[in-house]
Design a protein around this nucleic acid. Structure first.
Lengths: 117, 117
DNA sequence: CCATCGTATTCCCATATGGGAATACGTCAA
DNA sequence: TTGACGTATTCCCATATGGGAATACGATGG
């Protein structure tokens, strides 16, 4: 097998910096391909390709307007990522980080990380 | 150019499901490679490879213990992802989603999304 | 109907991925 | 020492990526 397709899910789609940039721009409102080309300083074909990927994973929606196509952010698709990462928040928040370290030292535990209760 | 290396950053490293699984397990405490192999039902070499990637991007740390190597989650590396995604939260939270729709319809705007103030 | 604009699609290519399989090590128990 | 264990590394290969360049196409204005 090779690496999973970029169109597999939001995680893969968003791994590409350009696509993140596109979403950043779209977060401020609907944009035409040309708008994006200008904003990203990237060739039009590549922008269209990235948009295709984002569309396939449902991160953007399109609307036709004459010869233009207006792309819009479809944020829901990012929730999965958010939810997954949020579960790790305690692991980088200083308060808990420090606490973990202390507990580990005191208990000599190999299996720490218990601020559950 | 081809796709960015998986070791480029957390975004790329975490795009692979197996690596996310590994982090999920490590979130509950230090684990040896063998532990992970058992938990993931994946061949040992592949686990070691994934761990290598995770280590290169700083998402895990290692500690030697006799013939074993104990891997530990290094959560800080996930913060970048969290921060980026969090910026889009308003786009999937129902309250705001509905509000956006209404505003868009009322104003006929092409450039909506303004609950700034 | 023609030229042009806005976008999408196709072709080409260097790159490295992820799994499978085999193997190389370093460490520990006899 | 020897053998087993725990882990890392190497080789092989099908796959598809992302950019560049060229081109196809639908819509629109004359």
């Amino acid at each position: 097998m090779a690496r999973a397709a970029t169109t597999t899910d939001a995680f893969n789609a968003v791994a590409e910096p350009r696509r993140r940039q596109i979403l950043d721009v779209l977060a401020r409102g609907e944009r035409s391909v040309t708008d994006l080309v200008a904003a990203l300083d990237l060739a039009q074909p590549q922008v269209s390709k990235h948009l295709k990927v984002l569309h396939e994973v449902g991160l953007v929606a399109v609307r036709e307007d004459g010869r233009r196509r207006l792309y819009r952010l479809e944020g829901r698709g990012l929730k999965a990522i958010h939810d997954w990462v949020a579960g790790f928040a305690r692991h980088w928040e200083d308060r808990f980080g420090a606490l973990d370290a202390v507990l580990a030292e005191i208990t000599g535990e190999t299996d720490g990380n218990d601020h559950e209760g």
